[in-house]
Amino acid sequence: MFKDLFQKKKYATIPSAADRPKRDIPEGLMNKCPKCGTIQYSKELEKNLKVCSSCSHHFRLSAWERINMLADEGSFKELDAALISEDPLEFPGYAAKLERERSNSGLNEAVVTGECTIGSYPVVLAVMSFDFFSGSMGSVVGEKITRAIEKALETSVPLIMFSTSGGARMQESILSLMQMAKTSAALAKFQSNGGLYISVLTDPTFGGVTASFAMLGDYILAEPGALVGFAGRIVIEQTIRQKLPDNFQTAEFNQQHGQIDKVVHRKDMLPLLTKLLDMHTVRRDVSYGG
C-alpha cells in the first residue's frame, strides 16, 4: 500500500519558456560570481565581505561598502563631500556624463575621503569607487586626495588609501595629468615628515593613478586577483604583438615581480591594517628588550 504513495498519478504540464510567467525574484537577491559562475544569496555574499564562497573571487566594492567594512562604526566623518567637477575643456558630452555618473552611482566623484578610526586608531581614509566614471582621476579626485594628504599631515595621523581607477580622466586632459604631480608632491611632503601612508590596490587600478599616489605607499597591499598596471593588456598586446599570460598584471603577478608588498585577502585586511597601525604607534613604555 505504501507503494501507491510513490506512484505518480498526476503529471504536471510545464508551460513553454515563452508563456511561462517571469519568476518574481527581487532585484539583487541572488548574485552570480563572474569568475566561477557560482550563484549565491546576496546576503550570504555580503556576510562574506563580497568574496565568492567557492572561488574566493573578490567582487568590486563601492566606496561606501568599503568604508563601512573598515571604519569603526559611526567614526567616519567625510571631508570635501561637495567638491564637484567643472568642464574646463568644454569637452563634448562631459557635463552630461558627469550628471549621469552622479545619479547612477549616488556619489559626487570617484573618491570618498574622510577622517575615521580603524581598530580605534585615528586615520585619514580615502577610498576610490570604480562605479563613478571608472574611477578616473580628474581635478576633483586629485584635489580631494591632496586635501586628504594635507589633512593627515596637519593632524599627524596615518593615511590609508584604497585605489581603483581606469586612469587619468581624458575629459580634463592636461588638468587630469597634473593631478598626478599634485598628489605625489603632497605625498612627498607628508612622507618626508615621517607620515605613514598605506596604499591598497583594488581591482582594477591603472594608468595615472597607479603611476602616482597608488604606487607611493610606504606599504603597498593589494586584494587577490586585482589587476594593477600602467598600460592595459590590450594596448600592450598590440604593441608587442604577443598574447600575454592569463595572470598578467594580477596582484599575485605584481607581488612576484617585486612591485607590491603583499596580497591580502579581504577578510584579513582589517586585522592587518590594525596591526600595521599598531606597529607604527610610538609607545613610551616599550623599551628595546633591555
Binding site: 598626478m180 605625489s184 597607479t210 603611476a211 602616482s212 599616489f213 597608488a214 604606487m215 607611493l216 594593477v228 598596471g229 600602467f230 598600460a231 594596448v235 600592450i236 604593441t239 608587442i240 604577443q242 600575454l244 598578467f248 598584471q249 615581480h257 617585486g258 612591485q259
Partner: peptide, 16 residues
Amino acid sequence: PGNTAEERGQSEAIAR
C-alpha cells in the same frame, strides 16, 4: 606600453 616595462614597475618608476 610593454610587458617587460610593466614587470619592472613602469608605474612605480613614474610615480617615484
